[in-house]
Simulated scan of single mutants.
Amino acid sequence: MTLGNRKKNAVKAATAAKVDALLVTHLPDVRYVSGFTGSNAALVLTGNRAVLFTDGRYTAQAKAEAAGTRVVIEKKPAVTAACEWIERAGIQRCGFDAAHTTVAALEAMRKAVTSKVRRSLFHPVGALVAALREVKDADEISRMRVAAALGCSLFDQMLSIIEPGMTEIAVAAELEHQARLAGAEGMSFDTIVASGERSALPHGHATTAKLPRQGFVTLDFGVILDGYCSDMTRTVHMGNALPGEHEAYDAVLEAQEAAVAVVAPGVTAGDVDEAARSVLRRAKLDRFFTHSTGHGVGLEIHEGPRLAAKQTQPLAEGMVITIEPGIYIPGRFGLRIEDMVLVTATGGEVLTPSPKAWIQL
């Protein structure tokens, strides 16, 4: 899909929301619609115009990246300049994404225009661009395949590196170092390395704790390549399993694979969640599954749809989602298994095919 088509789709969504223009300020949305990757920008879309506002640091970059978009370089804040332009253009109703607009930001938008239009100009219309981003085009999917493959190769490398006595921070540092050497622009999020009793923390960021001689180690990480994120989790075991650990791992693996198996266009996000949760319910472990089953991923690590109980949004071909059930038993252990899955016309394609069977180091 070209940037031109993305602009048209965004304008079409704005028209359906009964506004004359759309003010885009969330930077991933700005990038998706215009191609601009800078850290300061506001984009205005109308029926036949696209205007990007940024500052002098990005004069050359904006003109190179934002093909087909008028670029305005301003010394004042980009959003202020955009709002002033919106008023001068005679726009009567301008939509904005309330989910990414703070009360303070909205107040600044209103102060940028004259009092006679202040109360009538800006209208919350929801996350219109974010909704468009949920379904990936062929180019986006290609980029995400590469990012996912890099994540898999990093996990394979870590299997020969991690050993009892290493600190969680050392494991995270080595993984991130190897990611950078392989060309990653950065990590999708703070790398999670949680071992022993700390594996019972769903978001146990790496600490100075040492990997045990006997116990689980959960690795949850992702890389950014060409702007797109990857996300995967694997849990390995150091030494021989303690009572109940192998059985718990098998239950989580069965739950994860059951959820992957039901992925298809038209299946609801809640259906996928229930496929995983029902397996853990039968194993009497569901009370230890304390988070949703997954989420969309793309230019951001967390995008729509949200895969959780009672979520009625249907999956669509081209979505890239995570499926990541886990259990967390305080004072004992926790484990999680996560894949990125592409929704295809016929089902779900796992983009992170690293081994998921029990790994003992």
Rank of each mutant, 00 (worst) to 15 (best):
T59G: 09
A64S: 14
E65T: 05
E65C: 02
A67F: 08
R70E: 15
V72N: 04
V72E: 10
I73N: 06
E74R: 12
K75Q: 10
K75D: 05
K75N: 07
K76R: 14
P77D: 14
A78I: 04
A78G: 07
V79H: 02
A82I: 11
A82W: 10
C83H: 08
E84V: 12
I86N: 13
E87C: 08
R88H: 14
A89W: 07
I91R: 12
I91H: 05
Q92V: 06
G95M: 01
A98I: 00
A99F: 00
T101L: 01
T101K: 08
V103K: 10
A112T: 01
V113A: 03
V117Y: 01
R119K: 06
R119G: 02
S120E: 11
L121W: 00
L121D: 04
F122E: 03
V125H: 00
V129T: 05
A130V: 02
A131V: 05
L132N: 13
L132W: 08
R133H: 09
R133N: 10
E134Y: 05
V135A: 09
D137M: 10
E140R: 14
I141R: 13
M144A: 06
R145D: 14
R145Q: 14
L150C: 06
L150M: 15
L150A: 04
C152I: 01
L154D: 11
L154I: 06
F155E: 11
D156T: 11
D156H: 10
L159R: 06
M166I: 05
T167V: 04
T167Y: 07
V171K: 03
V171R: 03
E174Y: 13
E174I: 06
L175A: 04
E176F: 12
H177N: 14
H177W: 08
A179L: 11
L181K: 15
A182N: 13
G183W: 11
A184S: 13
E185G: 13
F189Q: 12
F189L: 12
A194L: 05
S195I: 06
S195Y: 09
G196S: 14
